[in-house]
Amino acid sequence: MTAPIPRSALLLAIAGLLPFLWGVATLLIDPAYDLAYSTLGGRFVAPYVQLNYGQVILAFMSGVLWGFATKARAEQAAICYALSVIPALWAFFMAGGGPVSAAMNLIFGYLGLLALDWQFWRWGLAPGWWMRLRLPMTLAVIACLLVGVFR
């Protein structure tokens, strides 16, 4: 049996979903949009909050993968370091344009990140519980971004 997801990691990961969920709320609930826009400004309403935060988190996850790469040896380490920068570069180069294309590119970025998460986990560089955390988190992020794409 694999170790359970550490409570702090789980709680922080769930907290990390809040900006994506807030983006959905401001997309679907006019009073939430109005309140956020008037008190916090345009950066904190959909689609901007989701797209900007989505880029930040892809870059953050590159750093997490970089940390996992430090456990690799010899030639595998070079491969892992190279793979670890892909999500950040993807976010930088592909999340521009209009909100729909940016959201779709972020979705593809998160799917690619999930594949990298799985590979690092399969290589034994990520904790045993990693995929049990990453899969539902990725699905939640993608679902939130899809609301903006299809609304």
Rank of each mutant, 00 (worst) to 15 (best):
G67V: 11
A77F: 07
L125M: 15
G98T: 03
V49E: 06
L114Q: 09
P6Y: 10
G128Q: 08
V149W: 00
Y110A: 01
A46P: 00
L21I: 10
W22L: 11
R73K: 15
A9F: 12
G109Q: 00
L40I: 09
I107N: 03
W123E: 02
V141Q: 01
P6F: 05
M137P: 12
V147Y: 05
L146C: 12
Y33K: 11
S62W: 02
V64D: 00
G97Y: 11
P19I: 14
I14T: 09
L10T: 05
Y81W: 11
L65W: 05
A77K: 14
A140V: 13
L145Y: 00
M94V: 06
R134C: 04
V147M: 12
A140C: 03
L139M: 12
S38P: 09
C80S: 14
L51H: 04
W123Y: 12
G63I: 08
I79H: 08
L11E: 13
L58W: 00
A69M: 03
T138F: 06
L113T: 07
G23C: 09
L113Q: 02
C144H: 05
P31Q: 07
M137K: 13
W121T: 12
A9C: 08
F20D: 06
A88I: 09
V141E: 02
Q119E: 09
G67Q: 10
